[in-house]
Simulated scan of single mutants.
Amino acid sequence: MLSALVWGALAASSLVIGAALGVVRRWNTRLIGVVLGFGAGALISSVSFELVQEGLAAAGGLPVALGLAAGALAFFFGDRGVERLGGRSGAKAAGMPLLLGAFLDGVPEQAVLGIGLAAGEGVSIALLVAIFVSNLPESIGSATDMRAAGTKSRTIILGWTLVAAVCALSTVGGYVLSALVGDRFTGGIDGFAAGALLVMLVSAMIPEATRKAGNIAGLAAVLGFAVAAGLSAVA
């Protein structure tokens, strides 16, 4: 359980690092888009080789399929709730939607890290890298917008630290639940995380990367996919 907390904290730490970087200075939009594209490609690889493949091996097709549907619906309706509060851009609200959006993205991702540890597979380096990298542009951009809207730096850092703490604890939660329930639960949660991430990637992360970086986002995504796939194969 301690290892789950440590790895979860490491993955979530990029939220705080990104928030600090966003508070310190304003970053080039194209650069943020490139990093976002790289993270999207890495997450697509993780969905393919870490979540769906391992879920099928652990529990078969039905639990994974049900998990995919549940995760997609949960993210879709949760994201609509975030949009009603002002959207994911800092221009319309005082920052709460940004934190909720990061929470919505981060919990299923990090729960899978704990599941892998509980199954005795060790931490997935490919998924760890994908989570760490994909967190950075979101928190940098959000913190920059919040700072421009007049939110105090201390408030911004505190808010993102709380989100990072909850995400880290999700790794422990995935570890504990998987150890208690077993493979069928593991397959369902793998599917749930995959469904949530796929909806997030298609509806938010990839369009945002393209908007910020143009066609370069596609190249960055392929590079991210290749790096994550290589790390998965090595592991």
Results as ranks from 00 to 15, higher is better:
53 Q>C: 00
54 E>W: 08
55 G>D: 07
56 L>H: 06
57 A>M: 05
61 G>N: 01
61 G>D: 01
61 G>F: 06
62 L>H: 04
63 P>W: 14
64 V>C: 00
65 A>T: 11
65 A>Y: 02
66 L>I: 12
74 A>W: 14
75 F>S: 00
84 R>K: 15
87 G>F: 10
88 R>L: 14
89 S>V: 10
90 G>D: 07
91 A>E: 15
96 M>Y: 13
101 G>T: 09
104 L>C: 08
105 D>H: 15
105 D>P: 01
108 P>M: 04
109 E>S: 03
110 Q>G: 03
116 G>N: 11
117 L>K: 01
118 A>L: 04
124 S>I: 05
124 S>F: 10
125 I>V: 15
126 A>V: 02
127 L>M: 13
128 L>C: 04
129 V>P: 00
130 A>W: 10
131 I>C: 02
132 F>E: 04
132 F>N: 04
133 V>C: 05
134 S>Q: 13
135 N>L: 08
136 L>V: 12
138 E>Q: 15
139 S>M: 07
140 I>K: 02
141 G>S: 14
142 S>A: 15
142 S>L: 08
143 A>W: 03
145 D>Y: 05
147 R>G: 04
147 R>L: 11
148 A>L: 14
148 A>C: 01
152 K>N: 11
155 T>Q: 10
156 I>P: 08
157 I>S: 05
159 G>L: 13
163 V>Q: 08
164 A>R: 12
166 V>Q: 01
167 C>E: 13
168 A>R: 09
169 L>C: 10
170 S>E: 07
173 G>R: 04
177 L>E: 07
181 V>Y: 06
183 D>N: 09
183 D>C: 00
186 T>R: 10
186 T>P: 00
186 T>M: 11
192 F>T: 01
193 A>T: 02
193 A>W: 03
193 A>R: 01
